[in-house]
Structure formats: C-alpha cells, structure tokens
Design a protein around this nucleic acid. Structure first.
Lengths: 236, 236
DNA sequence: TAACAACTTTGAACAAGTTCAATATTTACC
DNA sequence: GGTAAATATTGAACTTGTTCAAAGTTGTTA
C-alpha cells in the first residue's frame, strides 16, 4: 500500500548520490518557499534540471523526500545535541540542549514538518510517528534523552521509563512548534525552558519514596498499554 | 488555500438535505469497507447514483465528507455521554462514560479517523485538531468533561484546567485507538479504565495543598503557552 | 575496442481530486 | 398555465502524483 522511503539498495554510479542530494536540496528549498502541497514534482524536476521521470528515479514518491529530510534531521539533531552535551554542566543544560537543538535544526522548516506530521496517525505508513517503519529513528532520539540523563541517580523503574517519556514530551513540543506562529517561534523556546525547568526542579519530588505507589501505578498503566517498549505501535 | 468543510449557506430544495445525507452514508460505507484512500469520489458518486460533479455539489472536497463525519461523531458523542451521565453514580462512572462513548461511536471507523487525524498538524486546515476551524467542536467536547466533573469539590485553579486536560487525555486515547490492533480494540478500553481509575483514585493527592506549588507551576507553564485557553492555536 | 550489463533519463500515459460551463429540473410568482 | 430565478446535475477538462516501456549513457570485461 505504501512505498518505503528508503534509498535504493543497488550500487550507483559516481555522480548518483550527488544528484540525489541535489534533488533533495532543490525540493526542500521549494517546500520551504512555497509549501509542500504547493510544490509540484514537476516543479522540483524542472528546478533540478531533470525530467519528471528522472526525479522519480531518485525518490520513489513525494513523501519519500520528506522521509529523507527526516533522516537528515535526526542525524543532525543527534550530532548537535551530542556536541552540546560536551559543554553542558548539568541535567538542565543537557535537556535544554536536547530539545533546543531539535528546534534549531527545523527552525525554518515548519512547512516540511507539517507534511511529516500528516502521516502520524497511519500505523502502516513509513512515516508513522509510532509505526515500526520509524523505529530506528525513534530509538536514536530516545537514546539521546537517555544520554542526557546518564549521570542522574534514579530509581530503576524511572530510569527505564524516563527516556521514552522525554521523547513523548519532545513530540508534544514539536506539535506545539508546528502551531507556534510567534516570531521566530519564541514561544516554543520558552515552553522548552519552562518544561525543562519543571522537570529538573521537581525530579527530587518525583522520585521520592513517598510517591512510589503513584509512580508505580502510572508506569504499570503505560507498560500495560505497550507505551514504554519504545513508544511504538500499541500492539507489538 | 483550504476549503471549509461546512455546508452551503444557500437555501436548498426539499430532497437536498436528504440527498446530502445519502451521499455521506454512501461515502462512509465505502470508506469503512475499503479505506479512505482506496475509495474514489467516482466510486462514491456511482454508488450514490450520481454523476461525479453532483457529488461535488454536496461536498466541496473529499475531506469535507470526513469533516461532516466528525460533526456527526461529536453530536452523537455528546448525546450518548449525556445519556450515560444520567445513570452514572460517581466521577469514575462519568469519566468512563465520557471516554467509552467516544470510542463506541467510532468503533468501526478507524479508517475514517485516520483520515481525520491526517490534518491535525496543519494549523490553517479546517480539520486541524487545535485550529480555529474546529473550535466549536472542541468546545463541545471540553464542556462535556466539565460536566463530568460538575459535582466535584476542586480548587479553583484545577477546576478551570481540568476539562482541557481531560480533553487532551482524550485526544491521546484516540491516537492510541488509531494504532490499537487488538481485537475489538480491547486494549483501548483497558487503557481508558486504567487512566480513569488513576485520575479518580489520585485526585485527592493531586489537589492536596502539599502539592499546590507543583500544580501552580504546571498550570502557569500551560497557561503561558496558551494551552489552557481552549487548547487552540498556541497563539490566539 | 567491441559488446554487454548496469545505471540513468525520458516523456507519454494513467488515476484520482477538483473545476466549470452548460444543461436540466424545480419552485415561486404572475 | 407560463415563465424566470434558483437549485441540481452532468461530463469533459485540468492538475498533479505515479508508472512504465523505451532509449540513452557509462563502466566492465574479453
């Protein structure tokens, strides 16, 4: 039903990868300027100086281009965040870095992000937020949050769940970012700071033995629902 | 850019509303049987014994049909839930009713719900989850949760925020439902019961004066972000 | 270098959502 | 009953994502 978004498995010629990248760049430029819907594959092909069919040689579908963009985002995000972790002194700084760098990467690409979100609710789609097709990318991002938490002293149950929960928070923030029409998406930045501040300041309370029963109950519900595995399809 | 999903404002002839309903029924039947993507407007027109153009006379676009479906869902949901409230003894039963009836209405329509969710991330789209175009429907649903809470003794700050928060929970549950491939979506039912159980059982703790500072902080963050107004566009 | 295979490119054709000018039908009013 | 305005209906045409068979190009091997 859906085509996978991944690249061809066959060997290519010298300039091929370069052409592919050029098509991608061209497409993204047009998406940014005119929006995803508004940009035609004929536009892309023309701007890339290719025939329509040739564009399809490099990307099996229009959304595959968006898929490739998301690959890039994830890669870049991990790189930027890891870089920021180097000089980040404490948990607060690491969490802020993890979230802000994500927005940094996509600051000018809300148009494209919109196209990406479109398939979130279709479990079998290659771009589904929680689908199996995006598991690897999700994993990378979740691991990043695990890294941000690395030095923290946490009860075991919380330690397992926290990265997934932070990933969920991060998805919510992306959704907010999508709707955020404040100039430069300042409100999203503020929301990130506020949310991180809250998480950091209340982590002592959150992990206190007093709240253990409450915590336990929430985690059981989430685990039962299959939401802690890797936050993937509710039915693994 | 987008067409509104609402009905024509012009007066109609006697059978018109009936025909419109018939087109809607026909379309929904086909959507349910074959999926949204797989159902062609030509299929719909043929099944409704109309020409292609005539179908467009009743609905300005394919997604407008989904929009009309959602109108129906909301209406039905409110009716069912209110009915259930009549005989519901306590908060637990009212919250369960509010959530279960929503799933009841859409039990066999996950295909259609998928199409509906597709536009959630596009602020200006008539079907955007948090967009201005769906404000009225959102309002109805939020009010329903307010009703479920009616008899409860709650601190003022919580009272204002709770319905919106429950609505957000309800959106999350819909997303889960979308991905839930367990037979009859039993897992969604279980998740609802578990979530409601948790909310009801911990409401004493949640509103305790001890946690007031924590609560205050969360609410301030959400209010600052514009997420409590009616959970609409982050920038109202 | 010739021949072959693998990789690229092309443009025509197809499917499906959407538009629209033309036509048919109904209703309102005289 | 006749007629004009309003409402419904039609199907052809347009746009855009996608497919594909054919043709062009490049690298490899004998």
């Amino acid at each position: 039903m859906f085509k996978t978004a991944d690249r061809r498995a066959v060997p290519q010629r010298a300039g091929s990868e370069e052409t592919r990248r050029m098509v991608l760049e061209t497409a993204l430029t047009l998406f940014r300027r005119n929006g995803f819907e508004e940009t035609t594959l004929r536009d892309i092909a023309a701007a890339a100086d290719l025939s329509l069919g040739a564009a399809y040689y490099y990307f099996p579908s229009k959304e595959a281009i968006v898929g490739a963009y998301y690959d890039y985002v994830q890669e870049k995000h991990v790189a930027l965040a890891r870089g920021a972790f180097e000089t980040a002194g404490d948990l607060r700084e690491r969490l802020r870095a993890a979230l802000h760098t994500k927005i940094d990467v996509m600051q000018h690409d809300r148009q494209i992000l919109r196209a990406l979100f479109r398939y979130g609710g279709e479990p079998d789609h290659p771009l589904a937020w929680f689908g199996p097709a995006t598991r690897a990318q999700r994993r990378l991002c979740i691991d990043l949050f695990a890294e941000a938490l690395a030095g923290e002293r946490l009860p075991e149950d919380v330690r397992d769940a926290a990265p997934v929960l932070l990933w969920t928070l991060h998805m919510g923030i992306l959704l907010y970012f999508l709707y955020d029409s404040s100039t430069g998406q300042r409100r999203t930045r503020r929301l990130i700071d506020a949310a991180v501040g809250f998480v950091v300041d209340t982590r002592r309370v959150a992990v206190s033995p007093l709240l253990r029963p409450v915590r336990r109950r929430v985690l059981n519900i989430l685990r039962d629902a299959g939401l802690l595995v890797t936050a993937e399809a509710a039915n693994a």
